[in-house]
Simulated scan of single mutants.
Amino acid sequence: MTALATELTHGRSLVGPELFNRLVNFLVQEEKITRERAERVMDQALAFLHMSAHRDEGLSPSQAVDPGWHAFMLHTRDYAAWCQRQFGRFIHHNPFPAPQLYDGAQMRATVAAIEDAGFVVDHELWGTAATCNPPACCGDGGGCGGGK
């Protein structure tokens, strides 16, 4: 019997190191967060985008992860070229009304989809960490009411 090795993928592997660093630096400046947190946010945003391109149902980023998507979209040439290379089409941002955007069930479904695709999930940024119990948090990266 042969054991199957499963290696998880990081979202950051979906872009080159130079682009990843530029996006992280942008997040640090714009969001006023540490480099370590910006790297985590960008990694999760890229994994989320990968899943969004391959799933029809409404996946949604957490409130903590969404700034990573915004940072990438603001680098329009890089974002458009990456979407075309990765998926053959542009991934549009279609925001939901705020109450639906950070719904706990939707966050848990999004996290499950990302994990099922073999990506590493930073559960703290999604509000789905094992140490997270309702009502303190319910799956949106900052608690049932949102936040960072």
Rank of each mutant, 00 (worst) to 15 (best):
M1N: 15
A3S: 11
L4K: 07
L4C: 08
A5H: 13
E7D: 12
L8M: 14
G11K: 05
G11P: 09
V15N: 06
E18H: 09
E18K: 11
E18Y: 11
F20N: 08
N21Q: 15
R22A: 13
V24E: 12
V24T: 12
V24W: 07
N25Q: 15
F26A: 14
L27P: 06
L27N: 05
V28P: 09
V28A: 13
V28C: 10
V28Q: 14
V28G: 08
Q29F: 07
E30C: 04
E30H: 05
E31C: 06
K32C: 04
I33A: 05
T34N: 06
R35D: 11
E36V: 08
A38S: 05
E39F: 13
E39L: 10
R40W: 07
V41T: 15
Q44R: 08
Q44F: 05
L46W: 11
L46M: 06
A47H: 03
F48Y: 12
L49M: 07
M51N: 02
H54P: 08
D56Y: 14
L59A: 13
L59Q: 06
S60A: 14
P61Q: 09
S62V: 01
S62L: 13
S62H: 07
S62Y: 09
V65L: 11
V65F: 09
D66Y: 14
G68L: 15
W69G: 14
H70T: 10
A71H: 15
A71R: 07
F72N: 11
F72L: 15
L74F: 08
H75S: 08
T76P: 03
R77A: 10
D78H: 08
A80M: 11
A81H: 10
C83L: 05
C83M: 05
Q84F: 06
Q84V: 02
G88E: 00
F90C: 01
H92M: 09
H93S: 01
H93Y: 05
H93P: 10
H93D: 01
P97L: 00
A98Y: 13
P99D: 02
L101C: 02
Y102L: 04
G104W: 00
G104H: 02
A105T: 09
Q106C: 03
M107Q: 01
M107N: 00
R108D: 00
A109C: 05
T110G: 00
V111H: 04
A112R: 15
I114L: 06
I114V: 13
E115H: 10
D116S: 02
D116E: 07
D116G: 02
A117Q: 07
G118N: 06
D122P: 00
D122M: 06
H123K: 14
E124H: 12
E124K: 12
W126L: 02
A130Q: 11
N133E: 15
P135H: 03
P135N: 10
C138W: 01
G142Y: 04
G143N: 04
G143L: 02
G147W: 01
G147K: 00
G147L: 01
K148F: 14
K148P: 12
K148Y: 13
